[in-house]
Amino acid sequence: MLSPSHLPLSATLRHDRSGLLMRASHVLVVVFVVAALVFAALGAALGDTFFLRLATEALILGGFALSVDILLGYTGLLSLGHALYFGFGAYVSALMLKQTPSFWLAMGVVLVAAAAFGFLTGLIANRVRGVYFALVTFGLAQVFAKVVYNTRALGASDGMIGIPIVPIELGVVTVMSNAPVAFFLFTLGFVTMLYAVSAYLLDTSFGRVLGALRANENRVPFLGYSTHRARLAIYVFASVVAALSGALYPMLRGFVSPELMFFAASGNAVITVVIGGVGTLVGALYGSVILTVLKSVIGTMTEHHLIVVGLIFMAVVIFLPKGLMGFVRPRVARLLDGGGR
């Protein structure tokens, strides 16, 4: 299937346009961070804990959704089992913190372990494409969740409780994981960092190969790149981002449970990305805030919240196919473009 957009000339044009869109994403992240800071200031002034901790959870889930968007939006890989890595990070972090409550040690171990785990499972998942990829990732998550669910040493279906409060040393200051404002700010910084690293990586030549993979996989080898390696690399990277986000979860809530790995969690992350806007990165963060607020409000208002969530979810796919950021971002980009000239 040849289409004009695959010719070299228009490819460079497309890159200009995607560069512009990426800048629009950055602007929207700045807006997000500023809003979050205002929120934190107000929360601190009012002595709130509940909303701050809820918002922290939304940020953590936003980091997780970011990893799903890296796969879905940049490589066209729809994973229905990505919660496997989020849960993996949460469990490894919980196990480490129960041994020694050292933040950096736990994060280091999660980073290394998740890379290894993502590599091994990625070898399996990346043998297949399209709907089969969705099924294999789903199956992998299912199998591992079942193992965790049945393993006494990991708390089985009860999960693990009693994860201690963790001091996070940041050179000048130390953030305690149970301090609502400080931990919110820390999580905000952490997730923003994940965003920045992802955005940087996807803007390198490696990221362009991925974009090409999504557009037309069969042509990429002719450009001298290994599709398999590129896809595996991005899979490992997405696993690590999910696991690092998951690692913060037990610090916030003090426990982990097998539900973190279940299909519901994976599905939620995909919905978050679709609501926020596939392939925008920043959409994951906005989507997560929207979904968390929506669920919290609907969950306390009606018993039939799942039906409401299901309906919203179908409505978004049908009426807002590019998500919130798919709608907002081009407008911001147009403003940037106009300003640049």
């Binding site: 804990t49 509940f50 809820l54 999960g159 809530r253 449970s257 539900e259 919290s296 969950g299």
Partner: peptide, 21 residues
């Protein structure tokens, strides 16, 4: 009274909500 959906994470969120909100 809230519905914890049989999910621990939701339950924890709701008890925090009941304590502070």
């Amino acid at each position: 009274v809230y519905d914890d959906q049989s999910v621990p994470a939701t339950a924890v969120q709701l008890y925090e909500r009941m304590a502070s909100v």
